[in-house]
């Protein structure tokens, strides 16, 4: 999994590329949590354009980051999940917690 980030003012966008499973989730978690600590983030956008696979470990990761950012007074959004990712996201009820675009 390739992780890259872009910060504009207090909006942090995290671009993920590859397969998001239990194996890759811990690295993604560490990378995001480190960025959140470095500067004040009001909006965390997870860009999933290049995520080709995700299972329920991805849900755990997203919900975990949501609670983290929320506790710091920020919000989270998911961008560009493909159809099969969207199905798992909807199954988990995540769209009630954050915007998926």
């Amino acid at each position: 999994m390739v992780i890259s980030t872009k910060q504009e003012k207090n909006v942090l966008t995290v671009f993920l590329k590859g397969e998001l499973d239990h194996h890759s989730a811990s690295r993604v978690k560490d990378a995001i949590d480190m960025e959140i600590l470095k500067s004040s983030v009001r909006l965390l956008i997870l860009d999933m354009t290049d995520v080709t696979f995700m299972d329920s470990s991805g849900i755990g990761l997203i919900v975990g980051r949501y609670h983290r950012i929320k506790s710091l007074g920020g919000k989270m959004q998911i961008a560009n999940p493909n159809a099969s990712l969207l199905r798992i996201l909807k199954m988990s009820g995540i769209e009630k917690l954050m915007k998926i675009s």
């Binding site: 470990s57 919900v63 798992i88 199954m91 988990s92």
Partner: peptide, 21 residues
């Protein structure tokens, strides 16, 4: 659904639900 014995590991508890569906 959403029950997990390991919430500290940020597990969603969705594993069996995903397999079922």
């Amino acid at each position: 659904p959403t029950y997990t014995s390991k919430p500290e590991l940020e597990r969603s508890g969705m594993g069996f639900s995903v397999m079922e569906s």
